[in-house]
């Protein structure tokens, strides 16, 4: 059997996904046995022109991590789509927009203003901001265009499989690679490397009926490790999140943040989580309900932490952003 031709790419992401691949430890050697790596910017020195030179569909599988934030991300996404037989959205950012997607609550101007001027650690007396084109004596320099909005990979190109996680769990990554090598693939469009129910299925905490009188943050409250976090008023997105990670955060006494995305059948993870949490607020008095709900810090950011660009409203809707 011919060796699998594999490409890995890193777009708008933190790099954790690439680390997750490396985290398969000595099995990485087995990857090398199974596959020829045609592109992996974080580990190997390839140029885009090498990819451009390939015939279409030359790459068997491309694991693409990161969201599409700028014109370079988009360009490479289109390129790799053309050159790959199977394109996998790898990790939460490629799948749903991920943490970079939270920037969709703000306009490009606000993001640049914040990063190049407003943060406490920024020293920029000249007010220098990146320009797309700069003319220097040696010629014209070009930077990729910073888009107004973060998009998911499948909002730019057709995606064959989704492998969720921030980052995907190592064992799942390995299982997917093995399945690809064996040609044992589910129908296109499927989420792979995860299970088909919600996280609560994997969570071993004791679950009871839920009634929330007070919301709490893990920054100031240490939850009981045996009891369901939601019952303790800690917003845990587990009920509206696909299982598959092994409930790692919950085992570490931290609430699920929803990186595996919605369970099957759910279109908008944030809306579902919102609905579920609000439904069990334990009061029928509007003023008290408002008081309890006001204890939730940054509700949109909490419920859409990883899924904002893929959600129904995919970001803020202010005239400025349009």
């Amino acid at each position: 059997m011919a060796k699998l031709k594999l490409a890995l790419y890193w777009a708008a992401a933190c790099g954790g996904c690439d680390v997750a691949v490396l985290d398969i430890n000595e099995r990485i050697l087995k990857v090398a046995e199974l596959a020829d790596l045609l592109l992996w910017p974080v580990a190997l020195d390839f140029k885009y022109r090498h990819v451009e030179a390939m015939p279409d569909g030359h790459i068997d599988v491309c694991l693409f991590n990161g969201a599409v934030r700028n014109s370079e991300n988009e360009h490479v996404a289109r390129l790799l789509r053309k050159k790959s037989k199977v394109l996998v959205a790898f990790g939460s950012c490629a799948y749903m927009g991920g943490i970079p997607g939270l920037a969709n609550f703000f306009s490009r101007r606000e993001v640049l203003q914040h990063v190049y001027s407003d943060t406490a650690s920024t020293v920029n007396p000249g007010g220098t901001v990146p320009l797309e084109k700069v003319r220097i004596p040696a010629g014209e320099l070009e930077l990729p265009t910073f888009f107004q909005r973060v998009r998911t990979l499948d909002q730019v190109v057709l995606v064959d499989y989704y492998l969720p996680g921030c980052p995907p769990v190592v064992d799942q990554v390995w299982a997917v690679i093995e399945a690809i090598a064996a040609g044992n693939l589910p129908p296109p469009g499927s989420v792979v490397g995860a299970s088909d129910s919600a996280l609560c299925d994997e969570c071993e905490r004791k679950k009871d009926e839920k009634k929330i009188k007070q919301f709490r943050s893990v920054a100031t409250y240490r939850p009981d490790p045996e009891t369901c976090l939601l019952e303790q008023g800690v917003i845990c997105c587990g009920p509206a999140t696909r299982a598959g990670c092994g409930a790692k955060c919950v085992k570490a006494n931290m609430p699920c943040r929803g990186c595996y995305g919605p369970p099957p059948g759910v279109t908008d993870q944030g809306a579902k989580m919102l609905s579920a949490v609000a439904s069990v607020v334990d009061s029928d008095d509007p003023a008290e309900v408002e008081r309890i709900i006001s204890q939730i810090q940054d509700p949109a950011g909490t419920f859409y932490r990883f899924s904002l660009p893929s959600s129904l409203l995919n970001g803020a809707h202010r005239k400025e952003i349009a």
């Binding site: 088909d196 129910s197 919600a198 996280l199 609560c200 299925d201 679950k207 009871d208 009926e209 839920k210 009634k211 369901c228 939601l230 587990g238 009920p239 299982a243 369970p263 099957p264 059948g265 579920a276 439904s279 069990v280």
Partner: peptide, 13 residues
């Protein structure tokens, strides 16, 4: 029952 993860959010509703 295949999809229900047993979170019990619905129980009190």
């Amino acid at each position: 029952p295949e999809r229900c993860a047993g979170c019990r959010l619905c129980n009190t509703l």
